[in-house]
Structures are given as structure tokens and as C-alpha cells.
Design a protein around this nucleic acid. Sequence first.
RNA 1: GCAGUCGGUCAUUCUGUCGCUGUUUUGAACUCAUUUAAGACAGAGGAAAGUCCGGACAACACAGAGCAUUGUACUUCCUGACGGAAGAUACUCGUGAGGGUAUAGUAACGAAGAAGAAAAUAACCGCCCUGAACUUGUUUCGGGGUAAGGGUGAGAAGGUGAAUUAAGAACUCAUCGGUAUUGAAGGUGACUUUAAUAACCGUUCGUCUUACAAGUUGCAAUCUCAUGUAUAUCAGCAUUUAAGGGUUGCUCGUCCGAUGCUGAGGGGUAGAGAGCGAAGAUAAAUGACAGAUUAAAACAGAAUCCGGCUUACGGACCGACUGCUUUU
RNA 2: GGUCCGGUAGUUCAGUUUGGUUAGAAUACAUGCCUGUCACGCAUGGGGUCGCGAGUUCAAGUCUCGUCCGGACCG
Length: 126
Amino acid sequence: MTEKKLTFSAKEHLKSRKEISRIFTNGIFLYSDFIILKYLPGEHQKMHKLAVSVPKRLFKSAVIRNKLKRRIRESYRLNKYILYDYSEKSKVFFNFLVIYKHKEILPYQKIEEHLVILLNKLIEQA
RNA sequence: GCAGUCGGUCAUUCUGUCGCUGUUUUGAACUCAUUUAAGACAGAGGAAAGUCCGGACAACACAGAGCAUUGUACUUCCUGACGGAAGAUACUCGUGAGGGUAUAGUAACGAAGAAGAAAAUAACCGCCCUGAACUUGUUUCGGGGUAAGGGUGAGAAGGUGAAUUAAGAACUCAUCGGUAUUGAAGGUGACUUUAAUAACCGUUCGUCUUACAAGUUGCAAUCUCAUGUAUAUCAGCAUUUAAGGGUUGCUCGUCCGAUGCUGAGGGGUAGAGAGCGAAGAUAAAUGACAGAUUAAAACAGAAUCCGGCUUACGGACCGACUGCUUUU
RNA sequence: GGUCCGGUAGUUCAGUUUGGUUAGAAUACAUGCCUGUCACGCAUGGGGUCGCGAGUUCAAGUCUCGUCCGGACCG
């Protein structure tokens, strides 16, 4: 896909409660040092869908949790072309969760780095 | 100049690139719903927090009366209510500007561990008077008086002095502190100042009395739609009966029953919408990067809304005031 | 988002209603006895700023306020 679109609108958010609980129970894990990624191939959809989560146990403050979620979303927005390039050929789209794991607040560059690693792993496995 | 107190205002700003949410305009696709492109406008806080109060709003309950329960309690003013502003008195922290806490009534009743003789009808030691005994003494055993002295304790019979006495008390006199009554002055008022009377005098807590207020649950309330199925609830009729249940915790009062048949009716589960807003979603929107201002920073993120209280907080500015130091 | 509950020895809990002399119990731990030795049993002992900070009071685990942490329920 041409990288003209770097959007991440509400349609690409994973919203269905059912779908999320299905991924939580049956999803396939991918680990890095700071981030967990869980995914399942989606049915009857023409885009990838993403949900971001930062556990309340790691950070009590809502401000920090929001900040980390925004950093993850931003890094996905700028790097989702990796997945779309793959889907050009295979026509498979995914639903997946990204869960923050580390106990410290990481800067944007590190989050982006790790997310890219995980996305490449995902493509290798699929 | 340094340090500080009180009150108020603000809570970085700007530029560029890429993006997010809502409303709206125009164009395109389309029968509509809707999708999509471009533009415009709006887009977290002083505490959004804690959920400590009050209210709006919603559902349910409710004939009424009394008692009980819970909460509040100085004054004036403001407020729909919580509460706030300005004061009063007492205690307390600070050198000071100032800060904090408490506040109805006392007629009646009750309680106060340990320690201590005794916790309110006070004689353990001591002090004073006196009887007896003998070992004639700074002795022993009795009788009586006495709250001046003693240790305990948060608190010991308002404090101090004089006079009096065997020692003392009471009474008396003087003075100081508090309470009460009366008068005068000031204040809207709580109250303050002052004079007189000579009546009263330990501390704390509870019960009690008076006045006012209080139904329950909460937007995950509640309502609508679609999917979809068995039996809550209500009404009528028939039969039978007085034990029990509901209504506010109790009493009075008051209402209701059980079984069968017929009819009406729509529980639970998952989803969408309304509730819901000129910020406003329903996995939940304000971001990322670069540059400038010396540094970009504190506490912290709306979820039905509004008013307060409390707690967290780097810094900047304005006004009033206090202490110290230097100079004039 | 809303409504509630709890925090006490290493652990599990009493005690808080009605403030009072030295905060208890079980278990775990230590020492001794018992036994050839261990366990069981018996005896003794140590271990607590009652989550934290203020206030009321003569006196606070207990009452009041604030704060931190943990947990439950409500579609």
C-alpha cells in the first residue's frame, strides 16, 4: 500500500467487547521486553483493528496511563504500513491487543522500536 | 535588602509537519440509512481527585398520630440547600503580621480504673486537748477536737494575708479570680466596659431537657427498540378461612389472605438508542516530532449535571501587612 | 462511574459496640525435658510503634478528621 495514509481513525479501533474477550482467551501471544501483543485473524474485514491497554496495577495515575496509550497509538499509526504491505499479498487482516508490560515510563522512541519488532514477528508467524 | 503572613489572578506561549473527537458547510457515491474528500468552528481542571456534604433529575414506597433513633446547635447577614462572610467568648501555636480548635440549657440523675486516707456525707499520717499504764520516755494503749501541713493524682473542697484559737475551723476584715442578680453606657446581636449586692464556689464525661431536620436507592438509576421464550404480577368469578404478612424500628390505627378457572401482561440474557449538554465518548477523543523564549517543567485527565468542603501542587504577578538588618 | 467493607505477633484471627491497670488465642519460631534419634507430647521464652498523620481526653487499638493500601458488590 502506498504510505500516503498515516491515519488511525475510530474505525481502526477494536471496539467490540466480544471480540476483545475472544482475543484474551484464545489469542496468540507475542512478547518483547516491554510490550505484550495478542492477535487473532479477523473475519470479513478489510482493515486491521487494534486495542491498546495499560494495566491499572502498573500505573495508578490516569495521566500516565493516557500518555503511554497515546505513545503506543502514535507509534502504531506511523508504522502500520508494515502490516498493510503484508496484507496486500495475503489478504489476511488481524485483530490485536497491545498491552504495556514494563514498570517504568518509557520514552516514545523505545516504544516505537519494540512495536516494530513485534509487528515483524507477527508477519513471520502468520 | 532578606525572611514571612493574608487575600486575589494565572496554570507557558508561538511556529511548522503528521494525526484524533464532535458540530456544520460544500462536492462525490447512493433509493434512503450511510460512506468518503476538502474547508470552518469547538475540544479537560483549579483542583476534573477524594466521594466528605447538599441539590437537580429518575425509579420505588407512602391514609394518619405518638414514641423511639440519628444528626445539628454562639451572634448578625447572604444562600434553594450544603455552606460562606463578618464578628463574640474560651483554649492553643507563632517574636509578630496571623493560624488552628471548640461553642444550646443545667432543673434532675448517674459515673470516674490504677494510685491515694479520701474522688465529695473526706481523719491515714500529722497537729492540739485529755484519761490510764508503767519501763518515767522523742514510751504504749484509749477518748475527743481539727481540713493549717504531708505524699498520690488530670482534678483534693476558690487563692492570699490579718484577726481569733489548745490546735484549728466557721464567722469577721482586706484583697484577687470565677459564677449569679440588679443598674448604667456601647453594640442590630452574641457580648464588652463599669458600679453595686455579699448570695454562691473542685474537675471531666454521660443520661436528660429544648429547638430544628431526616423515606429508600442511585445515570451500572430509569425508559424505548429488536432477538426471544416461561410464568412473576394484576383484574374478574367460585370455594374456604383468621393463622400470618405488609405499612418506618415500636405502639395505636389501617390494609391485605389461600386454592382453582378465565383474561390481561412481559421476567432473565446479550446488543443498539435515549437519559447526554455550544468539550463530550461508549475499549472511551487534546497527541508525536522539530525549533524559539536561560529551562518547559508541579499536582494532575471530564464520563448525568450543578453548588460547596477537604486533600495534592513547581512557579509567576498584583494588593495589604509583620519581623530583622543597613542607609538617609 | 456508584455503593460498601477491611488493615492488630512471621501467618490466621479475637479485642473496637460501652475509651482504663501489663493488647490476647491458635499456629509458626527459639530453648529445655521426654527418646538411641526425629516427630508427637509437656514446660518456658522471645516476637506488636494496633497501616500512617493530626485532634478530643487525665488516658486512644477503641472516639473524630485527613491520608495511604487491599478487597467485595451493582449492567
